[in-house]
Design a protein around this nucleic acid. Structure first.
Length: 157
DNA sequence: GCCAACGTTGGC
DNA sequence: GCCAACGTTGGC
């Protein structure tokens, strides 16, 4: 069982959208390292049933806001085939897709958001990828201890 | 809206 | 296969 953080801009797809949908495809990832996490046969891949922190990036405030589970891996990202999508990929074919995504399942919305600023103040989270300077990766793994720590912070008083 | 950081592209 | 230019991410 591994733990992850996945970023989404709430203006594009928020935790409330996720709660409404219950299940969604994590489309639009256009970075190879992040994509590889979502490809089942890749050495760095997620496992079905792994949990992740849902994080609002480019938000006011940017914050961890909930949890989800990995439900399916290696799903060709349908947006790469859609000419009108901003994620259209002309090099991709149905037979040879380039971009893949995971299907994820809603688990819970935190009682209160755990802001980036708060996380920066936590010693237990000092090594979290999110807090490293210049990190732009939209999906990355974290330890169980870090995951539980953020979950506790989000569970309210 | 600015801009630092960094991944990607493409000329050579 | 180097690396400058360019585009994107995402905090502020």
């Amino acid at each position: 069982m591994a733990y992850w953080l996945m970023k989404s801009e709430p203006e594009v797809y928020s935790i409330d959208d996720f709660r409404r949908d219950q299940r969604t495809l994590w489309t639009g990832v256009r970075n190879y390292q992040a994509r590889n996490f979502m490809m089942a046969d890749h050495p760095t891949a997620m496992k079905l049933g792994d949990s992740f922190i849902f994080y609002h990036s480019n938000a006011e405030p940017s914050a961890a806001v909930g949890l989800g589970k990995i439900h399916r891996l290696s799903v060709p990202d349908p947006e790469q085939f859609q000419k009108k999508s901003e994620y259209f990929e002309p090099r991709a074919t149905k037979a040879k897709p380039i971009w893949y995504c995971a299907e994820v399942e809603f688990e819970l919305r935190f009682a209160r958001p755990v802001t980036l600023e708060e996380m920066r103040g936590e010693k237990a989270l000092a090594k979290l990828e999110l807090l490293k300077r210049g990190t732009r990766l939209s999906i990355f793994p974290m330890s169980e201890a870090e995951f539980q720590h953020i979950l506790r912070m989000g569970s309210g008083d």
